[in-house]
Amino acid sequence: MNYKKRYYASFCKENKHVTGWYDIQSLSHTNNVPLEKELHALTDEEWEKREPIGFGVVDGKLVKMEQAIDRVHRAETLLHEARSYVHNNFILLGEVPTQDWIDYQKTLIAIVNGADAPVPTAPSGK
């Protein structure tokens, strides 16, 4: 198998934790290495900074897992704020929320439930 980069990380799709580090050039064969499309390619700098535990792949980037936890916590906080905003500015006034606000909340819910998506910016106004 031909890999385009030298360094890779494998990671769990559910919890995003890195499950393996691969220096392709140092291997005599790649029989036990996942397919390249299932791996995250690393820069030389990322390879040098790697540690046995504590890393994950989130939004296509190698991160310390505290950052990933912070991302989910941020999405939870924004979801709470969005629900309050929609309730106060639409529901209590007998209006239907705009599609932007519905989509925003759905994206935040997906992130809280483990989706690998960037935390969106709230829609402006009504």
Rank of each mutant, 00 (worst) to 15 (best):
V58D: 06
K106A: 15
H17Y: 14
F55P: 00
E51V: 10
R71F: 11
L35R: 09
G20S: 08
P123K: 02
G60P: 00
T121S: 11
D103H: 03
G54V: 04
T30W: 12
T98M: 05
W101D: 00
D70W: 10
E38Y: 12
G125W: 02
T19A: 08
I109N: 06
T107K: 14
K126W: 11
G54P: 04
V112A: 06
G56Q: 04
F55N: 02
K16A: 11
E76W: 04
G56I: 10
Y104S: 03
D100M: 11
V58T: 03
H29F: 12
C12H: 09
A68C: 10
Q25L: 15
W47H: 10
I53N: 06
K5H: 13
Y104Q: 00
V96Y: 03
V86Q: 00
K37H: 15
H87C: 14
A110I: 11
K64F: 13
E95N: 09
Q67G: 07
A9I: 07
A82D: 00
I102R: 08
P34M: 09
D70N: 13
P118S: 09
N32G: 14
P120T: 04
Q99A: 14
A110E: 09
K4I: 10
V63F: 00
H73I: 15
V112G: 01
R83G: 14
T19P: 03
Y7V: 06
I102P: 01
M65H: 12
K106F: 08
A75P: 04
E14P: 00
A41L: 01
E38G: 05
S26L: 09
Y7H: 05
S26T: 14
Q67I: 13
L42M: 13
P52M: 08
T43W: 03
I109M: 12
K37W: 09
L78F: 11
P123S: 01
S124Y: 06
T121L: 07
R83D: 12
T43Y: 07
L39N: 08
I109E: 15
S26Q: 08
M65S: 15
I111F: 01
A41G: 11
D100W: 07
L42Q: 01
L42D: 03
V72P: 06
E45D: 09
Q105S: 08
T19S: 11
P52Y: 09
Q25R: 15
L42F: 04
P118H: 01
R83V: 05
E38V: 07
L79A: 07
Y7Q: 01
G125E: 06
L78S: 01
G94R: 08
K106H: 14
K126S: 15
V86I: 11
E66C: 08
T77A: 14
A9D: 09
L62Q: 10
H73Y: 13
N88C: 02
H17M: 13
L79V: 04
P120R: 04
G56M: 10
P123H: 06
K4D: 13
W101K: 04
I53S: 07
V33F: 01
A122I: 08
N31T: 11
L78W: 03
Q67L: 13
R71T: 09
P97K: 00
L39P: 06
I24A: 02
G20E: 03
D116Y: 00
S28D: 12
A75D: 03
F90G: 02
Y22P: 03
V72T: 15
R6E: 02
F55I: 03
G94S: 00
P118C: 08
E38C: 09
I69W: 10
S84C: 08
E46Y: 00
G94Y: 02
I111P: 05
V112Q: 04
L78A: 04
A122M: 12
K106N: 15
G94T: 06
